[in-house]
Every structure is written in structure tokens, then in C-alpha cells.
């Protein structure tokens, strides 16, 4: 075999791996944990992993939209907490019927996203700064409204945290539904396709008639709405809205997106990849728990996994050039 064909084969092999890299990673992880721990591959445990992954995954879908446009959203965790607090506060403290309170919570999430988008497009702030500011504002408003204490959720909303029958945890259902919505938005809708174009080359998108400002507003609003859903799911599992909930989750969300194969420089990313990224994080945490690895070491392992995933991304892009 000549070196040329060898190189070609190597390249083909690594393309296959990098395109499905995260999925292969997840399978390897599951197989390894099954061999290492008898408790891993049980229905109860897998459902548990699914529930743990749900909130991260929904936040990660939110981050996927933004990252595809070459932006970043550091506010999703704080917006999630704020939305949940607003739901509980309007419903429990002010007697607003729970369906209306839920709508209000979603509107708050979307409004936070729109504010991000407006700061980035009209205000010309870098996304990092705009959403960092929103992180502070949303987190702070949640604390102000709740006066720093958890507020019980209305019972009807708390059922979101239940399990239907014995095998269908509602958070997992919500995660799947949000994932399907993300896949459809990204693949089938105008705003979704515009996100890829904007992230790939904003000027080319603009000169092709895509209204970049409007599409970015939609992108961040969508992220805000998804963050609100994540916040409600998280609160329902605890049966109360906590102003300090989802602290630091935005970083897990970004990590899940990147592990899932999206590029922080924009134009690349998929709903399925993000879901796999979130599952990898959840499986990893769960497995390390089952193996009785100390919480301190877990952080180290997860850090290494994130670094490896981004290294893969860089290698992949270098190859593309």
C-alpha cells in the first residue's frame, strides 16, 4: 500500500470517527461501565441517568442554537432559575392559575433571550459580555423575587417531575420532545438554516439577503424559551423553585454542545450530537458514582473529557483546512 492510499484511508477513518465521535464515545462509555459495575445496566439506573441528563440536555439545546450562530450564551442557567421562580411566585404566592403562570414563566425566558439578542445586535456587545450580564441580572432578579428562599411549585406543575407508570419519567419525555423540536427547527425551518449560514459566514449570509439581526434575535429568544422549560423541569423534580438552582449549568450545557460536535466558531452543530453530549456527561457522572469515585476526582475526569472533546474539534477543523 502506498503512503497516499494509507493517508487516504486514515483520513476516511478519522472522518467517520469525528462525525460520529461522540456517539462512539457514549457507546464505549456504556460498555465499559457495564463491565465495571453490575449496577449500571439496570432499568432503574438508566432511567435515573435519563432524568439527570434532562435538564442539562434542554439547556444544551438552547446553547446549540446560539453556538451554531457563532455566539455563546452564559445566561441559560440563570434564566432557567428565574423562570421557575416566576412560575412559583405567580402561582403559589399570587394565586395565578398554573397554566397562565407557566406561560408567564416561558415569556420571561423568551424576554431574557430577546434582551440578550438586542444587546448583541443593536448594542453590538460581544455575546460573551451580553449574556454574562444577563446571567447576573437574571440570577439577581430570581433572588429578589423569591427573597432568597425556595417557593413551592403548584402540584400540577410538580407532576412534570413524576414517572408515568414505572418506566416513563416525564423529564425524559420533555427532553426527547425538546430534542425533536430542536432537530426540526435546525433542519427544517428558515430560522434554523439561517443560523448555520450566519455562524458559517455572517457577511455572506447578509449579502444573500438573510436578515441577520432578526435571525439572531430569534436565536437568543429561542434559547431563552428553552432555558425556561429546563428551569421548570428542574423545579418540578424538587417540587419547588429555588433561586440558586441550575448554578453553573450553562457551562455543562456548553460542554455538552461541544462534546456533541458543534464548533464554537459557528456553523456546525446538531440536536442529536448535543443530546449525546449531555448523555455522556450524565453517564460519566453516574458511572463515577457507581464506581465510588470521589466527587473531587469526578470534577477532574469531567474536565479532562471536555478538554479531549474540544481537542478533537480542533483536530477536525485543522484537518478540514
Amino acid at each position: 500500500m502506498t503512503t497516499g492510499t494509507l493517508r487516504l484511508r486514515l483520513r476516511r477513518g478519522s472522518t467517520l470517527l469525528s462525525e460520529n465521535g461522540s456517539l462512539i464515545g457514549l457507546v464505549v462509555l456504556v460498555v465499559a461501565l457495564t463491565l465495571l459495575s453490575g449496577d449500571f445496566l439496570t432499568v432503574t439506573n438508566l432511567l435515573n441517568v435519563g432524568v439527570q441528563a434532562a435538564v442539562t440536555a434542554i439547556l444544551a439545546f438552547a446553547a446549540t442554537y446560539v453556538i451554531i450562530t457563532a455566539g455563546i450564551d452564559l445566561s441559560v442557567g440563570a434564566v432557567a432559575a428565574l423562570s421557575a421562580v416566576v412560575l412559583a411566585w405567580t402561582a403559589t404566592s399570587h394565586g395565578v392559575p398554573w397554566p397562565l403562570a407557566t406561560v408567564i414563566a416561558l415569556v420571561v425566558g423568551i424576554a431574557c433571550g430577546l434582551a440578550n439578542g438586542a444587546l448583541i445586535t443593536y448594542g453590538k456587545l460581544p455575546p460573551f459580555i451580553a449574556t454574562l450580564a444577563m446571567q447576573g441580572v437574571a440570577r439577581g432578579l430570581g433572588l429578589v423575587i423569591s427573597q432568597g428562599s425556595p417557593i413551592p411549585l403548584p402540584d400540577a406543575v410538580s407532576h412534570l417531575g413524576d414517572t408515568i407508570g414505572s418506566y416513563l419519567p416525564v423529564p425524559v419525555i420533555v427532553m426527547v420532545v425538546m430534542g425533536v423540536i430542536t432537530a426540526v427547527v435546525l433542519n427544517r425551518t428558515y430560522p434554523g438554516r439561517a443560523m448555520y449560514a450566519i455562524g458559517g459566514n455572517e457577511e455572506a449570509a447578509r449579502l444573500s439577503g438573510i436578515k441577520v439581526t432578526r435571525q439572531k434575535l430569534i436565536t437568543y429568544a429561542l434559547a431563552g424559551g428553552f432555558a425556561a422549560v429546563a428551569g421548570i423541569v428542574l423545579a418540578s423534580r424538587l417540587a419547588s423553585a429555588q433561586p440558586q438552582a441550575a448554578l453553573g449549568y450553562e457551562l455543562d450545557a456548553i460542554a455538552a454542545v461541544v462534546i456533541g460536535g458543534a464548533s464554537l466558531s459557528g456553523g456546525k452543530g446538531k440536536a442529536l450530537g448535543t443530546l449525546v453530549g449531555a448523555l455522556i456527561l450524565a453517564v460519566l457522572r453516574n458511572g463515577l458514582n457507581l464506581l465510588s469515585v470521589s466527587a473531587f476526582w469526578q470534577q477532574v475526569v469531567i474536565g479532562v473529557v471536555i478538554a479531549l472533546a474540544v481537542l478533537l474539534d480542533t483536530l477536525r477543523r485543522r484537518q478540514a483546512n
Binding site: R193, Y196, A197, G200, N201, A204, L207
Partner: peptide, 15 residues
């Protein structure tokens, strides 16, 4: 300014 280099032929033609 003309192309989204990381996207495929189909995407660029349909922009």
C-alpha cells in the same frame, strides 16, 4: 463574503 466555506454545495446554492 460570497460563500459559507464550511457548508456544502447544496447549502450555498440555496442561500
Amino acid at each position: 463574503q460570497g460563500l459559507v466555506l464550511g457548508a456544502d454545495v447544496r447549502e450555498n446554492l440555496g442561500l
